[in-house]
Design a protein around this nucleic acid. Structure first.
Length: 1155
RNA sequence: GGGUCUGUAGCUCAGCUGGUUAGAGCGCUACGUUGACAUCGUAGAGGUCAGCAGUUCGAAUCUGCUCAGACCCACCA
């Protein structure tokens, strides 16, 4: 190519018209060749070729002119929008995000960061951007340093958050999740998660993140699932995971448990009720929980109540008297309120702990919907809020309220996802025991392991460092207070708990269902054995049960022989299951009442007996002429159930029947007298298990699922039929706790359990784990970082990362949290669009310190946009006016300014390296900015316009620019890469080697440089001109009496004259006569006189002020030096510098006064 | 109640283990478009380092207290 270029350029030079004519006549030139010739012609200044080519090839002149400027110069203003996407594409296509493709040395260090996986719930915010910017800086820096560098990206399924989001979307569409059914709903969630993931991935790329997409992970993918299940199994086998019926934080809206730290508190004013409570008066904010009280607790040493401890009292309540025990418990504060508290073990965390200590019974009164349960009489079915209102009303009537504090400060616990008030209630859940000693881990608890990892180090690793260090204290605090971690969630989206249940062999499971509605039902007409058909609604009701039946997977469906039940049974069977009939589950016989409206019964048969439940509702017919009694129904149902328990031993049966028989089956299931079960049937399907005891042949209802089931915990579904997986899912932090190591496996096969320890059998794991640094916001220190340490130290007996770097939160300009509802969000994408990614990154990195919140404003981003443009123009100047050559520098021809900038550069490289290593990104950024703008652009670049050693200047300018681009690259990857490309450097800047400062070190005289003095002198002259209002355009004459700096100043004559000092004639002498009518400046021992155009008054004022300042300063030093103790005790170096300062100042003062 | 942090120029913040005439950016004021850049240049004004006391030859920096603010944890019966 070179040879051709050479020849072509000669032809263009010598015979330009030949080229043009060849082009016109033969038309053989390919467009590419035209462009090439054009380019060459421009460089050679052969404009005739350009214009002729344009003519012959029908290029418009505009296009030619455009091309001309494009080729010769870069655009005046850097436009990030035009280049960022294509640069990212170039990086990505290069493959160098993947460490396997990097040309690293064999003994290169490994460096790895796991990206904190953003939730797949929506879009990127500034917090993510800050995280990505910082991690990208670290990644790019290490990559350029030659490390085998991996930044591993991924996303988090964020169970509750994602499900909540999809529910919201569905709600807007008017769909209910329960209508949709489990499978279809999950499909929707997955679709949403996928879309959301794609959006987020695009946004991560927009930020310029150089992460390795080929290794991307998802907390819910196959490989991560294997890890989750393996660790669950290990923990279960080690007895760390247990299932317990305990009071948990329950969100009635999410219908799920929450971990302790997922509960948030909201300040609110509430009423505090002082209620009369037998012999006590005590305060409560929740009077409705009185229905669940079983005790009163007082402090054991409280004199007022001491004698009452252990006694039982009858307390009057809205549903009649009830009995409580008085217990003494240290948790009670006798100073607060009346010093006595009511204990509701089922609906308060603290109370349940008290109850546990004193073995108190619990009475559950609030259900999973946050509503009062059936045992609450007339309050049943009300929400807690409604019930509170009613109960308070009733208590007032009964004179049970002593007084009410109207505006009591209270903190309401709410769900961190949906702000719904939390309802503590007892529930069967899975927990991780944090205080159990693990024999295979040196008998340590996971708590102890996690504390040790940060305190002193574990498994032969150094301690984990948290930056800023103060968060280590918070960490220990939290870890020491940690309670058992509830890991099961009642939501659909997430890792289903890897536990399978199977009924024991002699168990029969029965699913009870009621037929669909008929018209008679709607009209409240007594409907017994008379054949009627289900209506449209009835059909739908049955169709909704298809999924339930399918999941239950029955061996047979037994239906009452009536048409309405049989039809319903056929619908739910959905052609998949066999349907048979059985006379014993037929509806009650209503005899003469059949076909009557409910209200007509009493009229026609006054002797009829009916029964109404407490709290009201429809009366139930007990006895009437010719009507089958409940007792009779009970008996035939019991007979039926005994029969199928025998006949279908170990099988599953669906029973399709009617209200009254189902009520009786409820009585049998619950072991209640028949009367108590009347009206108890809720038409939502109910599963019961029956066991025939061999010796007595008794029908036993299996309410206790645990004893009736086999349990299996493992990775995969166990072999054999009938195993049903736990429908609960795991807390999302369980899977994210495994993030650092689970992401280093590329397939499920690489994850194994060996000797009670998790093994990741992959090169990535061996190379990159523990990861080097975990970088994230301090707000998830406990949520996530602590859990990663817990899970990793336990599962693989190692630490997840060596360092933790915590950044602050990104707040708005007023210091408020950004939130959509407040409308104060700054959208990163919008800022990128407007100011470019680089500017956005800088605004997040510079001016923020680790662990401290940062205020961000659009102006700040615009400010850094100005900087990227400045860098662009610096480069534009060098590229456009200098020969881009890399040659050896001849030290002999270097000016003072050259050596000065080279010395500065040497220090800069050292500083930046160190700052990044120490996570001082802001400091590094500021130093770079300072050097680039002030030293390099404002001073050095200016000298290059006037100093005459062009050869050396070219070399230095290009060299420094290149190294500067490298230093800047981790911070502002796009603009640096673009400039790098414009300089015709072959490879990507991204993989260039990090600058080596040994070159700069070798330049003699680059340190201890006196150029600063020249800067001072020039600034002083400019200052004097400005102060004296000398117009910039006006030239002045100047004389400098340089004294001992004669040589220095003489050598810098050209700069002193040229750098915006407006000096026409400059005379430099050692000393001389003071000129008339001149401004006098004293700087660095030199006297400078500007002749002509003086405002005497102003000049005098200026001098006086300077003298004044100086005298003050001198006096200060003198006092200090006079002090004997100072001279004695201060280090010699300090004393010496003070003495030097004094001497210099005194000299200057003398000169100033000498006018 | 327990804990952590912050208070430095009008604004946003640097200032590490005590030694600077206390810095930067933005903003402000004045002047300026000579070919890299007005997304720019030159120059300037602006601070009792929250307050008080102590340690020290010397404190923005270390200690104690006070005031103001932020956040985290626990509890609020």
């Amino acid at each position: 190519m070179n040879r051709h270029t050479h020849r072509l350029s000669r032809v263009i030079h010598e015979k330009p018209f030949c080229i043009c004519q060849a082009a016109s006549v033969l038309s053989i030139f390919h467009n590419d060749i035209i462009a090439y010739v054009l380019n060459l012609s421009i460089v050679l200044g052969q404009f005739s070729v350009i214009f002729n080519l344009a003519y012959f090839k029908n290029f418009g002149y505009n296009e030619i002119i455009f091309k001309f400027f494009m080729l010769k110069e870069l655009p005046k203003i850097y436009n990030p929008k035009d280049v960022e996407d294509s640069i990212y594409k170039k990086w990505e296509e290069s493959g160098f995000f993947n460490p396997d493709n990097l040309d690293t040395k064999k003994d290169a260090k490994n460096y790895c960061i796991s990206m904190p996986p953003p939730n797949v719930t929506g879009v990127l915010h500034m917090g993510h951007s800050a995280m990505l910017a910082i991690e990208d800086i670290l990644t790019r820096h290490h990559r350029m340093k030659g490390d085998r560098t991996l930044w591993l990206p991924g996303t988090d399924h964020a169970a509750i958050a994602t499900q909540t989001k999809v529910e919201k979307i569905l709600k807007e569409e008017g769909i209910n999740r329960h209508e949709l059914g489990r499978e279809k709903f999950l499909e929707r969630v997955k679709k949403f998660a996928q879309e959301s993931h794609d959006t987020i991935e695009g946004q991560i790329k927009k930020m310029g993140s150089s992460c390795d997409w080929s290794r991307e992970a998802y907390t819910l993918d196959e490989t991560r699932t294997k890890a989750v299940r393996s660790v669950f199994k290990m923990m279960y086998d080690d007895g760390l995971i247990y299932r317990g019926d305990r009071v948990v934080n329950w969100c009635p809206r999410c219908h799920s448990t929450l971990a302790d730290d997922e509960v948030e508190y909201k300040e609110q004013k509430t009423k505090l009720y002082w209620i009369k409570y037998g012999p006590f008066v005590l305060a409560t904010t929740r009077p409705e929980t009185k229905l669940g009280d079983t005790a009163v607790a007082v402090h054991p040493s409280d004199k007022r109540y001491k004698d009452m401890i252990g006694k039982k009292y009858n307390i009057p309540g809205v549903l009649g008297d009830f009995e409580i025990t008085v217990v003494g418990d240290r948790s009670v504060d006798s100073e607060f309120g009346s010093g006595a508290i009511k204990v509701t073990p089922a609906h308060s965390m603290v109370d349940s702990e008290i109850a546990e200590r004193h073995n108190l019974p619990a009475r559950k009164i609030i259900n999973e919907d946050g509503k009062m349960m059936d045992n609450c009489g007339k309050y049943a079915g009300m929400t807690t809020k409604e019930a509170r209102k009613e109960i308070v009303k009733d208590m007032e009537k009964m004179n049970l309220i002593d007084r009410v504090d109207e505006k009591y400060d209270n903190k309401l616990s709410i769900c961190y996802r949906c702000d719904t008030p939390i309802e503590p209630l007892p529930s069967l859940q899975w927990f991780i025991d944090v205080n159990k000693k693990i024999p295979s881990r040196d008998n340590k608890t996971i708590k102890e392991l996690s504390v040790e990892a940060v305190k002193s180090g574990v498994f032969g690793r150094e301690k984990i460092n948290i930056y800023p260090e103060r968060f280590e204290k918070n960490y220990f605090h939290w870890m020491n207070d940690l309670k058992d971690w509830c890991i099961s969630r009642q939501i659909l989206f997430g890792h289903q708990i890897p536990v399978w249940y199977k009924d024991k062999e002699d168990i029969t499971s029965v699913l009870f269902l009621r037929h669909g509605q008929t018209d008679w039902n709607v009209k409240s007409i007594m409907q017994g054995r008379k054949e009627t058909d289900i209506n449209e609604t009835g059909r739908k009701q049955s169709e909704e049960k298809i999924d339930i039946v399918k999941e239950f997977n029955p061996d047979i469906i037994i239906s009452s022989p009536l048409r309405r039940t049989l039809d319903s049974a056929k619908i739910v069977a959905n052609d998949e299951f066999k349907v048979v009939t059985d006379e014993r589950i037929i509806e009650r016989s209503y005899g003469e009442i059949e076909g009557l409206h409910v209200s007509e019964i009493q009229k026609k048969f006054p002797e009829a007996e009916s029964f109404t439940r407490e709290g009201g509702g429809t009366p139930y017919l007990i006895k009437a002429p010719g009507v089958e009694t409940y007792r009779q129904v009970f008996d035939r149902i019991e007979d039926f159930l005994k029969d199928i328990a025998k006949k279908y031993k170990g099988k599953r049966v669906v029973v399709m029947s009617h209200t009254d028989p189902l009520d009786m089956s409820e009585a049998i299931i619950e072991g209640l007298p028949w009367k108590d079960a009347i009206g108890s049937w809720h038409d939502n399907g109910r599963i019961a298990k029956f066991l025939i005891k061999n010796e007595k042949d008794e029908l036993v209802c299996g309410k206790d699922f645990n004893n009736s089931q086999n349990i299996y915990v493992g990775i995969d579904k166990p072999k054999g039929k009938r195993w049903v997986q736990d429908t609960d899912t795991l807390d999302t932090w369980f899977s994210s706790g495994l993030w650092t190591f689970s992401t280093l496996a590329s397939s499920p096969e690489q994850i194994k359990i060996e000797n009670g320890k998790l093994v990741i059998d992959s090169d990535d794991f061996r190379n990159f784990h523990p990861t080097n640094v975990l970088e994230t916001g301090y707000d998830i220190l406990f949520f996530w970082i602590a859990r990663m340490i817990i899970m990793t130290t336990y599962a693989i007996e190692d630490i997840p990362f060596q360092d933790v770097y915590l950044h602050g939160l990104v707040l708005d300009e007023k210091g408020k949290k950004m939130s959509k509802s407040k409308g104060n969000t700054i959208d990163p994408l919008e800022m990128i669009e407007k100011y470019g990614t680089d500017a956005t990154r800088l605004s997040l990195v510079i001016g923020s310190t680790p662990g401290n919140d940062t205020k961000l404003s659009e102006e700040k981003i615009a400010g850094y946009r100005n900087f990227t443009n400045k860098l662009w123009n610096i480069s534009r100047f060098i590229i456009g006016s200098r020969e881009l050559k890399e040659e050896k520098l001849d030290d002999k021809n270097l000016t003072l300014a050259d050596k000065w900038i080279l010395g500065k550069m040497k220090n800069l490289i050292e500083d930046i390296d160190k700052d990044i290593e120490e996570y001082k990104f802001s400091q590094a950024g500021e130093k770079l900015r300072e050097f680039t703008w002030n030293d390099f652009a404002d001073w050095y670049l200016e000298t290059s316009k006037f100093e005459e050693n062009k050869q050396e200047k070219d070399i230095i300018l290009v060299m420094i620019l290149k190294d500067l681009l490298k230093l800047w690259h981790p911070f502002i990857p796009f603009v640096t890469e673009e400039i790098w490309g414009q300089m015709n450097n072959g490879d990507l800047l991204m993989i260039e080697k990090w600058p080596d400062n040994s070159f700069y070190k070798d330049i003699e005289g680059s340190s201890d440089n006196e150029f600063e003095k020249v800067i001072d002198i020039i600034s002083a002259i400019r200052n004097a001109r400005a102060e004296n209002k000398i117009e910039p355009a006006k030239k002045v004459e100047a004389i400098i009496y340089a004294g001992k700096n004669l040589d220095l100043i003489k050598s810098q004559k050209i700069l002193i004259k040229s750098l915006k000092t407006g000096i026409e004639n400059l005379e430099i002498k050692k000393s001389g006569k003071i000129p008339e009518q001149a401004i006098k400046i004293v700087e660095n021992g030199a006297e400078i006189y500007l002749i002509g155009a003086i405002d005497k008054e102003k000049e005098k004022k200026r001098t006086m002020k300077e003298i004044e300042n100086l005298e003050k300063y001198i006096k200060g030093i003198e006092n200090k030096l006079k002090n004997k103790v100072f001279a004695e005790r201060a280090p010699k170096a300090v004393v010496k510098t003070e003495k030097d300062n004094l001497k210099n100042s005194e000299e200057k003062l003398k000169e100033l006064k000498n006018i």
